[in-house]
């Protein structure tokens, strides 16, 4: 077993373990943290696949930004664990059946019959100076430029929609405008009162 395989099996084991914990752990904060671990280990596996740009972007976007906001929300919410856990036993058998069917489907589709080494040859490793990033950028902005731009516009619409849906106008906003605050001069605010000192009677 080569070094790469050892790394692959170690990180795959961590990935499967973390993914299992995400859905089975009780505390939602731990679930979010295990999801972070799952993202990170899958990024490592992508690096093994020589997809370093995708791996680093996964860490940068999902681990560094999206999951931070997730954690934010989960930590601030006062979640009632008893309500969350209600009915766990009752639905467990159904869950097992669904999971089993999905595993069977996955094995049937991605199994060695369709994706074995004789069907799909393993790609030859690239030279050390091969830049994955450059290649991706070139394809993304030439061949797939329209799908790429459309996807970005859809995301933009989603952002605007989310803001528009959650925006609420306050009656008495406490908004302060720094531009106006900077403009304040001493004359507007300060009044120097001069008065004679009191003398003792």
């Amino acid at each position: 077993m080569g070094f790469e395989q050892i790394v692959f099996y170690i990180f795959s084991a961590i990935l499967v373990f973390a993914a299992g914990m995400v859905i089975s752990v009780r505390n939602p904060v731990f679930a979010a943290l295990f999801l972070v671990l799952a993202f990170f280990t899958s990024a490592v596996i992508w690096i093994l696949l020589e997809a370093e740009f995708l791996a680093l972007t996964l860490v940068l976007v999902y681990v560094g930004a999206v999951m931070v906001l997730f954690l934010f929300v989960v930590m601030m919410l006062d979640i009632n664990l008893a309500v969350l856990k209600r009915g766990f036993r009752r639905y467990l058998p159904v869950g097992f059946v669904v999971a089993f069917i999905m595993i069977v489907q996955l094995v049937l589709i991605v199994g060695p019959e369709q994706f074995g080494l004789d069907k799909v040859e393993s790609p030859t490793p690239r030279a050390a100076d091969y830049s994955n990033t450059e290649e991706l950028g070139r394809v993304l902005y030439t061949v797939y430029v329209y799908p790429f731009e459309i996807a970005s516009v859809i995301l933009l619409v989603a952002i605007i929609a989310a803001i528009a849906l959650t925006l609420r106008k306050r009656k008495h906003p406490r908004f302060m405008s720094p531009e106006q605050q900077i403009k304040v001069r001493r004359e507007d605010r300060l009044r120097i009162v001069k008065m004679k000192s009191e003398t003792k009677l």
Binding site: L60, N132, T133
Partner: peptide, 9 residues
Amino acid sequence: NAGLLYILA
């Protein structure tokens, strides 16, 4: 190759 991206991540 992707050093800067690595540091950012």
